[in-house]
């Protein structure tokens, strides 16, 4: 019957059209990451050719106007800020999640979790602003000048805390209830149960949380730009002002030209390299852990 047949073929055409559309969208979405890498490399290429990778770590300082391109102080700034904030935020975040699950009275656990979710939603520029007008003057009173590595670490800690807290919360929620009942039946007190039963069962989730928060700490720009003082130097104390790689890009991109601009794209590449290294090492470690 013709009507039935034409109906069928038009439907097949719709299916075909839909499938082409979907493949097209997925193709585009999938190539964005590649496109980003390609453009970073393309834009960084002049600097890599004229200056060479080695000079980014051996030049005497960062003075693009005079042709000096040492990224090392800013790399240190990024690493110190990251390490400090991860060291503080990890225990705080995990303790927060434990509070929600095992210590808080039920009436408190819900609101506390909502509070962490709210913290996660606050934009970095607001954290930065608060750090600038509240935290920096406070630090300045204890030990001038105020804008410092310490301020950066504290603000970063507040910012990445929700990441680890929410991840830890989710992985604790996945610990099977019968483990806990078993531990309780053995008469283990609360902390002993958490240490012996909960941590081992939740460790892969906790580990993922640490990786995620580290990634956030490396990539954060605005908050740290607003409180760190942005002096290009390798910090010798917590109270020294520092400049991170991300802040450097945000500060100088507006007026950078030629090799200077290319040098900023090189620092973008360095950031990407750090993130990729983080992801790869995370997978490498967790692969080892699956089988133990």
């Amino acid at each position: 019957m013709t009507s039935s047949n034409s109906n069928t073929s038009s439907r097949w055409a719709t299916d075909h059209l839909l499938s082409w559309f979907l493949w097209g969208t997925a193709m585009m979405a999938g190539t964005i990451a590649l496109l980003i890498m390609v453009f970073l490399v393309l834009e960084a290429l002049p600097a890599l050719q004229h200056i060479g990778l080695v000079r980014f770590f051996t030049d005497s300082s960062w003075h693009p106007a005079e042709g000096l391109y040492n990224l090392a102080p800013m790399l240190w700034g990024t690493l110190f800020a990251m390490a400090g904030s991860v060291l503080i935020a990890t225990p705080l975040g995990i303790l927060s999640a434990i509070f929600c699950h095992y210590y808080a009275p039920p009436a408190l656990a819900g609101p506390y979790r909502r509070l962490i979710e709210l913290l996660a939603g606050i934009p970095s520029v607001v954290y930065g602003f608060w750090g600038l007008v509240v935290l920096v003057p406070l630090i300045g009173e204890v030990h001038p000048p105020g804008p410092s590595l310490l301020a950066g670490i504290l603000i970063l800690t507040i910012m990445i805390l929700p990441t680890i807290a929410l991840m830890a919360d989710a992985s604790l929620a996945h610990v099977p209830q019968h483990y806990l009942r078993g531990a309780a039946a053995l008469g283990l007190p609360r902390w002993a149960m958490i240490r012996r039963v909960v941590f081992p069962a939740a460790k892969s989730g906790l580990f993922t949380g640490v990786i995620l928060e580290t990634g956030r700490a490396i990539g954060e720009t605005m908050a740290i730009l607003m409180v760190c003082g942005n002096v290009v130097q390798t910090p010798s104390s917590l109270f020294d002002p520092v400049r991170t790689l991300t802040a450097n890009i945000a500060l100088e991109m507006a007026y950078a030209l030629g090799d200077h601009r290319a040098a900023l794209f090189v620092s973008g590449l360095v950031l990407m390299a750090m993130i990729v290294a983080l992801i790869v090492s995370a997978e490498w470690i967790s692969r080892g852990r699956i089988y133990d």
């Binding site: 990634g215 990539g219 720009t221 890009i249 993130i275």
Partner: peptide, 28 residues
Amino acid sequence: LFGRLTRRSLDVLAGVPSIVFGLFGNAF
């Protein structure tokens, strides 16, 4: 294979720092 590559690529995209998106946006 295509699905796995796309997923992996999106995972990387999710980890890209926002300032790098800024660099890319400016260049592209």
